[in-house]
């Protein structure tokens, strides 16, 4: 569904992505682990096209999208959430989700009707709000809700495009354990045919939702396999936990 081949990126002398090969099957849930600065977010930025790799290629559903623009990739069904909230501040939660759904339905440039009132958008907003537990807050302004709610909206916006592949960058960063757990219930309830790639810092939660695990360290894939193997991997413990304790 989503594949990278020898993806490489450096910022000046710093090599942030070193020949990364990644392959996700349709419906796969893969968790990316790795210490701070390992290049996880930079990898996402390349997958969606916000950063151009130096070399290597990216395929979505068999199609080479390496040179494709951000918006075009999105229209093919690739969606992401950000590590740092990237919302439409000042608008309501309903408007945030509605705008996302409207754009994804190709109605972001329409002139003749209000897409926010259209049945498809209204239905999508309702469904996504239920998925990410935002239903009670729909008419609240983004500025007026707690950080945890905004964090859920961050993922909600990405889901409202009804993507084929969703990339989530530390969706639970900064939220309490209670909310984190709720979030992982939510993840498990996502449609099985949705391909999910999640960057996650919390090991337990990662093992809880992952079908497969990829570990990045200094821009390199140092582990790629099943959660059980990852759990018992000495390499992973050394790199990941070592760095984790340093951080």
């Amino acid at each position: 569904m989503l594949e990278t081949r020898a993806l490489t990126k450096s910022f000046g002398a710093i090599h942030v992505t070193k020949g990364v090969n990644l392959k996700l099957e349709k419906g796969e849930r893969r968790v990316i682990l790795g210490p701070n600065g390992a290049g996880k977010t930079t990898l996402f930025n390349q997958l969606v096209g916000e950063i151009t790799p130096n070399s290597g290629s990216i395929y979505l559903d068999g199609q080479d999208i390496t040179a494709m623009r951000v918006a075009d990739r999105a229209r093919l069904g690739l969606s992401r959430s950000y590590q740092k909230n990237t919302l439409f501040d000042g608008l309501t939660i309903r408007e945030n989700l509605g705008l996302s759904a409207a754009v994804a339905l190709g109605r972001g440039q329409g002139l003749w009707s209000d897409p926010l009132q259209s049945p498809e958008v209204v239905e999508t907003v309702r469904e996504v709000a239920a998925q990410v537990d935002l239903a009670p807050y729909l008419d609240a302004s983004v500025n007026a809700v707690s950080y945890g709610i905004r964090r859920q909206l961050e993922v909600g916006i990405a889901l409202a495009t009804r993507p084929k592949v969703i990339l989530m960058d530390e969706p639970t960063s900064g939220v309490g354990p209670e909310m984190s757990k709720g979030f992982h219930r939510l993840l498990k309830a996502l449609p099985r045919d949705l391909t999910v790639l999640i960057i996650e810092h919390d090991m337990d939660l990662a093992f809880d939702v992952a079908d497969t695990i990829t570990v990045l360290n200094y821009g390199e894939v140092v582990f790629d396999g099943l959660p059980e193997a990852a759990r018992s991997s000495q390499l992973l413990k050394d790199i990941y936990l070592g760095a984790w304790e340093d951080a």
Binding site: A71, G106, G108, Q109, G110, P115
Partner: peptide, 28 residues
């Protein structure tokens, strides 16, 4: 109140996100 108008307001708040959602920003 059209789709374009909704996107226009969205662009004011967060251009990057709208692009990531699939909007051709320059055309809007």
């Amino acid at each position: 109140r059209s789709g374009l108008g909704r996107s226009l307001v969205g662009l004011h708040h967060n251009e990057k996100r709208l692009r990531a959602l699939g909007l051709t920003v320059w055309r809007a």
